[in-house]
Nucleic acid binder design. Structure first.
Lengths: 246, 246
DNA sequence: TGTACATCAGTGAACGCGCGTTCACTGATGTAC
DNA sequence: TGTACATCAGTGAACGCGCGTTCACTGATGTAC
């Protein structure tokens, strides 16, 4: 290993450590992260951090990007762990549970991504792509179900427990949005299924946010069971078939 | 009017003005509200604010409480404006739209209530009661439907477009939570309907949070139409009958 | 009605603190010949 | 292999700022007799 690459590796390790310390600070201080406090914890002088990040906002951006990718990694891994790819309901449950577990394990980072926007801070466009990774995992469950013929365009027709929703035409403006959403993430899916997926996406993050942000306190104590029931209900709505062996 | 009560009135007006200025600051600074900045805007010296609020946290608490009550006022008014109390679907739509409009009109206050918790700040218990007012309006739609016989215990049986959900027993721990939730807010409602209400509550706030916090950017442009469709879907799920005249 | 006293709103200075960022610097580590 | 130079990480002092809160004070407004 050349001397230069050693230096590069040390630099990478320092960068990672700064981010790790900053993540710990997020836990207690929220988004008003202090560069000086991070430097103190690292035993350096505050100006030394500028060798690694050009500004406080740059550090925050790095944390946000890491968080999106950390979430996506967890969700992708959970989905991939279901070996029988045809077990759509198991995949749905595994992926959504991964979202919840990641959020509960790292609530401050979750808040950074899905909580109140930090005033005066604009997230760079890379974060959009990172966020899409997670959405893509969930969308793929529907896409796989549709292309394999298990799911039909009208949710419920394909063997789920909910009969088909009475055909009610979508508002054209909404249909336009859904068509656009199909481009990036849900190739080939009929609009009705995209709508189902979007509804589930909202319910999933609505529920996780409620739990992480304390809105479920004194309301729901059986958090695990409640979450699973909600996710099963969404699977019913989408028409995902029951598991082969229960 | 006695001299003393004039003084009291002036005091009340000053208190209200301080809160109004502070609300404006929330819009740009988020939850890290600065007492000094508020005082500057009022043309006073910062220590003068202490005649009205014992600390920065006290001011924040007052804003939070006002926000909860402002939301509840709006929602109650919207529901009450539906003169035919039997029009459950119209009431549901009016009340949920009021939540959304309040949130879009005052996003900073919405974020204070439903966004990331402010680190190191614990909301006093009065806020729980204020929050319950809003929940009660939505619950009352279901209660009215149930006690008048329009809604049945199994959502969908009472005339909605969704057939009854196949009887799947609730986890006992979840059932316990639902029974407790019934105490405060949804007297007499069967567990299945409480669950439906809670699901709707989550979807409603999940969607509004997504919109207010920017998660819908570049995804859904037809915000009004999308919201209404989601709310209609929830009404379907609960079994609320179609409107008499469409 | 008039006066002595009490209450209260607002002032201005100060305390002690933390922050992001810049800048000239030291000394170690790497590179080129 | 040895030396002269360039790169780079980290230091320490400083700038200019804002913050919450306390405290002794002034002067106006209200109250009691």
């Amino acid at each position: 290993m050349t001397a230069a690459s050693i230096r590069a590796r040390v630099r990478a390790e320092m960068t990672a450590e700064i981010k790790a310390v900053a993540r710990r600070h997020l836990e207690t201080d929220g988004a008003n992260l202090s560069l000086r406090a991070v430097a103190r914890d690292m035993g350096m002088v505050s100006s030394a951090v500028y060798r690694y990040f050009a500004s406080r906002d740059d550090l925050l951006t790095a944390l946000i990007l890491d968080a999106y990718n950390g979430l996506a990694d967890a969700v992708e891994a959970a989905d991939a762990a279901v070996k029988d790819r045809g077990q759509l309901r198991a995949r749905w449950l595994a992926a959504t549970r991964a979202v919840r577990h990641w959020a509960l394990a790292t609530p401050a980072e979750y808040a950074l991504l899905f909580g109140s926007p930090v005033p005066g801070y604009a997230a760079p466009p890379d974060t959009i792509a990172a966020n899409a990774r997670t959405a893509a995992v969930l969308a793929r469950v529907l896409v796989d179900g549709y292309t394999s013929g298990v799911l039909s365009a009208q949710p419920g027709e394909g063997g789920g427990r909910w009969p088909a929703r009475p055909a009610k035409p979508l508002a054209p403006t909404v249909r336009t949005d859904l068509v656009r959403a199909r481009e990036g993430i849900a190739a080939g899916l009929p609009e009705e299924l995209i709508l189902t997926g979007l509804t589930s996406w909202i319910q999933l993050f609505g529920l996780v946010s409620f739990e992480v942000f304390g809105q479920l306190n004194n309301v729901i104590d059986a958090r695990d069971a409640f979450f699973d029931e909600q996710m099963e209900m969404l699977a019913d709505l989408a028409g995902l078939p029951e598991r082969a062996s229960v």
